[in-house]
Design a protein around this nucleic acid. Structure first.
Lengths: 237, 237
DNA sequence: AAAAACTGTGTCTCGCGGACACTGTTCGTT
DNA sequence: AACGAACAGTGTCCGCGAGACACAGTTTTT
């Protein structure tokens, strides 16, 4: 019923406690390998992560990694699990709204610390326990407020998508003058140049407005929207 | 002030009307090249797009493409511009909420038609006129409702992020039995197996709830949240 | 007519992921 | 104690990818 590759990755992420041992003892470990990969990705981006470099950082040959990891996709899955924090505990007695606010900020922090997570968590892939714990927190926070199961999951997708979007954007406007910031500047120049075709964007970009609270803004809108639904459900109960 | 690579891509996307001509006439065009890339990406995914294959589809050699395009990143930027629809016209006299609803569905359609757009529009990159037109629509729809410039842009990011998130998820649960669907099934199995550690998710996934309206759900929450803000601003005006 | 500018090609390099055969080590079995 | 199975790490090889570069052919300008 379940497929080969999917099964491999899932086993690696979920149930690799130990195996029978006959030959020499492994000199490496999944943890060390993942950590080396994270180190490279943090420093040079996900694109710089190759089997060669990871192995080199550990003073091993590339092929030795394949004794631990079936392939690169699985290595990256392990890196994600290794780089993602455990979600922080919600404050005692906090309501759902406060819990989700803390959650979103914490998740945004993770993306800020490891920008490559944005690239690594695109598309279909296996999810590890650490990552699933984040989902659990959202769904749990919304338990018992009149939302059905799929709705709670949808809300989680909504929040995750927002944090991702913000992280993507704030990475482009990063701290240093990375090559990515150039593109942003170029976009601004282009918009000004074609202000006649894009008047609303040009006006919006010209308006100082004051703040840089994109995460907060979207988060408050989402939470307001959820609050409205929860209240409605409570009244028609 | 502006950087090299960024400038190249921007010029390619925004202002390539013509150049002086001396030698032989180009047999190819940016349009044909982009279309060939889109064809491959539609059929086999973005990963299958290589200079070789694109050139092969056009019966040219790989290197000839470099006469038109500085590199692969620029090719993909052109593919995105080529694949993205022009945003549909809003119905006459429609309110902001209706406009944004139509917009979001139309954008979701684009992602459904070209799933590789999700992969191609990750990370920092140059944005073309077609893509900018989508942003313009959102910002314009929110003009004159008491939101300042950055807030209107934030709202656009919020909506885009949501549609992206939904598209990502619905691609994983795609129509056929793609390899991606296996992972989803594997996740379900894993959650059931570890239901003690992830009770909320397990319960949410077990609850049939009835529908598959993830796009609608999040969209309504966001729009409700925006409506609340707009109303608040109108009252304190 | 000659030169300049341009298009498309063939060849080369480097780095990548991964298959495979091989050597050496360690443990369970006899 | 000895042997053989199971395993760890290595070296070699392949195909594919992006791209640099020199070159031949074509068209326009001088």
């Amino acid at each position: 019923m379940m497929a080969e590759a999917a099964n491999d990755t899932v086993r690696l992420l979920w149930g690799p406690p130990a195996k029978p041992t006959r030959g020499p003892k492994p000199a490496l470990s999944l943890e060390r390998i993942a950590a080396a990969g994270v180190e490279i990705a943090d420093a040079e981006g996900l694109g710089a992560v190759s089997m060669q470099k990871v192995a080199g950082l550990l003073d091993f040959t590339k092929m030795s990694l394949y004794r631990y990891v079936p392939g690169k996709a699985e290595l990256i899955a392990l890196m994600v699990e290794s780089a993602v924090d455990a979600p922080s505990d919600a404050p005692e007695g906090a309501g759902w709204r406060e819990q989700l606010t803390v959650w979103a900020h914490h998740l945004a922090d993770s993306f800020a610390r490891h920008p490559w997570l944005l690239d690594a968590t695109v598309g279909a892939r296996a999810i590890g326990p650490r990552e699933l714990a984040w989902l659990e927190r959202v769904v749990a926070a919304l338990d018992g407020h009149g939302l059905n199961g799929p709705e709670r999951m949808d809300a989680a997708v909504l929040l995750t998508g927002h944090v991702r979007g913000i992280a993507t954007q704030s990475r482009a406007a990063g701290p240093d003058h990375n090559p990515e910031a150039e593109l942003l500047a170029a976009l601004g120049a282009v918009v000004q140049e074609h202000a006649d075709r894009f008047p609303a964007v040009a006006a919006a970009m010209a308006d100082p407005g004051g703040r840089d609270q994109a995460l907060e803004f979207g988060l408050e809108r989402i939470l307001d929207g959820l609050a409205a639904l929860i209240e409605r459900r409570a009244n028609t109960d």
